[in-house]
Design a protein around this nucleic acid. Structure first.
Lengths: 231, 231
DNA sequence: GTTTTCGTTACACTAATATGACATAGTCTT
DNA sequence: AAGACTATGTCATATTAGTGTAACGAAAAC
């Protein structure tokens, strides 16, 4: 309940978008809008919303096609999607669920229903570490207070190092290339040298101290990995 | 590393093509060029490049028209396109995105920006493969965490040994010649002595230890084989 | 017993990463 | 609005890890 959740509304009809946006904003969400798949994709990559509301029928790339594309791509695969559809079409529903859509609402729907479902999906899908503290071997990151402690002692981190650590702690035991880290931590469409990642890794390790810097592991020829298991 | 990505540069001005080609080749991409839509189309069908850089303004079929055509055809629909345009024209930008162009760069641009964007688009577009861990007789290789364990104990491998083992474990019970291994593990166009393979086999066996080195078997006169069955 | 083929080791060379220093762009103070 | 901080990205350099070759010994094959 700290920072409000950001929802991207994708629908080709402006009035519908507006209606939804108003309803959601009253419920305390932050909304952005897109009227086609391309624009939506760009916004998602850049801003990483917490949720996407996706209209089924759209000119150009259809909703379901778009959903499938989002699921396939690493950067967007984890973002929850709620599909909006005009008619109760069982067939579509099946397809939608197969695509990995998280929920499915048929128009017309009441704002109350929408908000309720949205909340439910967010509760289900919000991974630990986004609002719950994560701890690994005495190292704790609390996203709410935006604080990191090592065995109780506060750790001083710059904003980037914080995000980096947060990403690592919520995606442990997995090797990431520098490009991937740039995508996931820095956000899409920024271009910085890959070596810059090394520098921030260095700063992070330094801040973690001897007691914990083993958690940030170098995977030669590949990138980095966060793990409690020693290599 | 992996096979380099091939980029087709479509622009009617030869100097510009050249400039771009040089920048990309320095960054490790393989370039081909076309100065009109027809030629470009032929090359795309023949060579299936991983990416098309498309100039907005071209005599004959314009860039945007061409992009639309590519999107419509089954075979070319999935090839990512980056549009190059001379002026900051918002209107064009919109049209371009509607056409399904993946990104959009306004001239003049720095080589670095170009390469960065290209990389980003390729990363987004390349579908993430589902990588499952492989296990053979207590020996496990996990591509995701980029780790190898023998009966739970971590095994320390260099990058090449890792790739070698990965190849072996995903292609077991089959003998490969040294040159085949060089092709598959080292990558196509590298020249190294065949005997170098022996050395890496040796390093791999050593790292696997007595418990598991039997898995890497010598096929005299032919090459090597990975198998759980003893010969 | 001679000839191949493979195993092993040592070593020079390269490539990848770590690190420290610096320039720049914001922010906040005063 | 100038000065003091902070954060960040990039470079240059140091350090370390990984690679490929050659040379020689050991096993097979003939």
């Amino acid at each position: 309940m700290s920072a409000s959740k950001r929802v991207l509304i994708v629908d080709d009809e402006a009035p519908i978008r507006e209606m939804i946006a108003v309803a959601l904003e009253m419920a305390g969400y932050e909304c952005s809008e897109a009227d086609n798949a391309q624009d939506a994709h760009a916004q998602i990559v850049d801003n990483k919303p917490d949720m996407v509301l996706l209209d089924w029928m759209m000119p150009g790339t259809s909703g379901i096609e778009f959903a499938r594309r989002l699921r396939k791509e690493e950067v967007t695969a984890d973002i929850p999607i709620i599909m909006l559809t005009a008619k109760t079409d069982e067939d579509n529903k099946i397809k939608g669920l197969e695509t990995g859509v998280d929920d499915y609402i048929t128009k017309p729907f009441s704002p109350r229903e929408l908000v309720a479902r949205l909340k439910a999906v967010l509760r289900r899908t919000t991974p630990k570490g986004v609002e719950e503290p994560v701890t690994v071997d005495g190292l704790t990151l609390d996203p709410v207070s935006h604080r990191v402690t090592a065995d109780g002692q506060p750790v001083d981190l710059g904003p980037t190092e914080f995000r980096l650590l947060q990403f690592f702690m919520t995606h442990p035991d997995r090797a990431y290339s520098r490009s991937q880290l740039l995508d996931m931590v820095w956000g899409g469409n920024v271009y910085v040298e890959e070596r810059t990642v090394d520098v921030h890794i260095r700063r992070l390790r330094k801040a973690l101290g001897e007691r914990h810097d083993y958690l940030v592991q170098t995977v030669r020829g590949t990138g980095y990995r966060f793990s409690a298991q020693v290599a």
